[in-house]
Nucleic acid binder design. Structure first.
Lengths: 160, 160
DNA sequence: CATTATTCCTTGATGACGCAACTTTTGACC
DNA sequence: GGTCAAAAGTTGCGTCATCAAGGAATAATG
């Protein structure tokens, strides 16, 4: 009982899960720090701008944005408050349904995204391509895409 | 400029990175919730108990535990405070170096780990094996292990 | 030795996020 | 139309983790 994991062979699922955890933690820390330092954006800030910029009309219902970013509604409220305060996103109301509020990317938001994305994408590539081959990256993306909800964000928008 | 990502093909690295993000978020939410609800443990609580149980003598310097769990020293302090309050981990001082404090898993901690790990491992397998084939899991683990720092935790300890 | 750098650990302040509770608006059903 | 369920969004509160700063012990250097 002192050696818990040696009683039984480590299952592939557990091994994969553990490595996913660590890979996420390691890569996120670095990418997040760079994005924050150079552009004052969180990863989710960036992703939100990206999703909005690709959405039809540059806007999306807050609830759809939440689904896309895998955040709760309250998370979206706070995320967007920051972006609104920075002038990167605006609120727009919906005429046909008073409950919904749209998040609308501004010109400043597009500029910010344009600037930040070059550096961010370069960072991602630098970080990953340093250790992974191209076909390995494809393989990871392919396999992880089988988890429901993972590949759905690929369009980076689904105008509602 | 309105369609940022369609100007250029999505790079494999970016695609892989995005999916890694989402896969992490999706799996973690569910596994974390189960672990918390059924055993009152955070994922990091669990991992800490696991690492300690496999360490020589069931104890590890706090700084080594921090490296292993990819947490900062302050994170470890707060994590261990919870485990100490719950009686699952004890402090032990080091005779030869008064700076270091060991984290020592208790019998209660081992019992807790024993109980929780069965359910937790089952949850991991259920979640992942539902969507991934065995060789896909192996492939993920294999590839992600190439990132420095990811595979190093496999021994779940490195007694200092 | 004396001084300075380094290591280990803790604490205070802060930020991001989830959950639960709530308001407002809409839609469904009688 | 009236009632009741569902959905959008906000807020209060709690949790977890970071960074920055500091205290104490040790190592390195003159």
């Amino acid at each position: 009982m002192t050696q818990l994991l040696t009683e039984q062979p480590i299952k592939p699922a557990v091994r994969a899960w553990t490595r996913l955890l660590r890979a996420y933690a390691l890569t996120t820390r670095q990418l997040s720090a760079e994005l924050q330092e150079e552009h004052g954006l969180t990863i989710n800030d960036f992703e939100a701008l990206l999703v909005l910029s690709n959405a039809e009309g540059g806007r999306l219902k807050r609830v759809d944005l939440a689904r896309n970013l895998l955040l709760t509604p309250s998370g979206i409220t706070r995320l967007l408050r920051g972006l609104e305060d920075a002038g990167l996103v605006e609120r727009a109301s919906c005429a046909s349904d008073l409950r919904v509020t749209y998040a609308q990317i501004t010109d400043a938001g597009r500029d910010k995204l344009e600037t930040a994305s070059n550096a961010h994408i370069a960072s991602i590539c630098a970080l990953l391509e340093e250790h992974f081959a191209g076909d390995e990256l494809d393989a990871i993306a392919e396999i992880l895409g089988k988890l429901p909800g993972v590949a759905e964000g690929d369009e980076s928008c689904s105008p509602g």
